[in-house]
Amino acid sequence: MTGRPQTAARTDRPLEDFAAEIGTSDPVVVVGGRTQWGVGGEPDPTAREVHAPRGVVAHEPAEMIVRVRAGTTVAELDAVLAEGGQTIALDPAHPERATVGGVLAVGQSGPRRLGWGPVRDTLLEARFVSAEGRLIRAGGPVVKNVTGFDLCRLLVGSLGTIGLLAEIVLRVRPRPPVAVWLRGAADDPDRLRQALFRPSSILWDGIDCWVLLEGHPADVEAEIKAIGPGFDPVAEPPPLPSGGRWSMSPSAVRNVVATLEPGTFVAEVGVGIVHESTAPPSRRVQPATAALHQRIKANFDPTGRLNPGRMVT
């Protein structure tokens, strides 16, 4: 295998066109798949809508990276990656609609975060359009990089309030040879986590546990034995309740869900996300930290024209 990109470019328009659409004045709101439209507040309906460019520019399996336009859907990206035997754990709820840029801008990881890490760690390079309509590059197309300040991390989860993603380079990984979800009754999900080495996911609804094991077939078989009896393969994980996404220290999950009706929530064990129907209370941010947020927003978007209405805090 060589370094030649596995895929030819299948993109719709140059990045410069996107920058020009955003321009230098007036409020703009970037629209992806509208699957997470409410996160951080509904965007100002009067703002001009723009759409990020689409298409997978280059998948380079031997580099384990992919260059993709922000408006590409996650399903399309994963189909291209699969051709090269690779994948990425973005795992949005609606991959056929959710865009790669949208997933990164919202910054929420999927249920495989336990084994695959958070989505923020997959972003290697970002080309984004600034509030001044300039095309800016952050990071670089290599898997390890400390050249300059880490704007990539800042962009993930910033809801498009400091720059609008146009094209990104993501770190991808080999598709695991075997992946199997198991389900069984469990009142101590932490026991499973201790018994397994880097499981990809452990979900718990207070009654049952769902465990995702991925890897070499013999290892997966051995891990199934380690879990013990009472767990059987299932086709897929449980549906995640929507409406409330609670974030807490993984060690706090047990106590928090003790107040909830079993079966009404799904907790990501070892991660600290609990999905349920009610929204979590808003969190206080320390004054010094809040001041930092404000200065960052002011420095990158002094007129507040990027995604008005959406707030990161």
């Binding site: 400390v146 800042l154 989860g157 990501e268 941010v285 010094a288 930290t289 930092l292 960052i296 990161v312």
Partner: peptide, 29 residues
């Protein structure tokens, strides 16, 4: 400890603390 002498918490022990990823911005600075 910020350059003006004040103290700020960046990031948190939970997976999705609110706000910009100041933790990520600070690491490597």
């Amino acid at each position: 400890v910020l350059p003006d002498g004040s103290l700020a918490l960046l990031g948190d022990l939970d997976p999705e603390p609110p706000g910009y990823d100041l933790r990520g911005a600070f690491v490597g600075s």
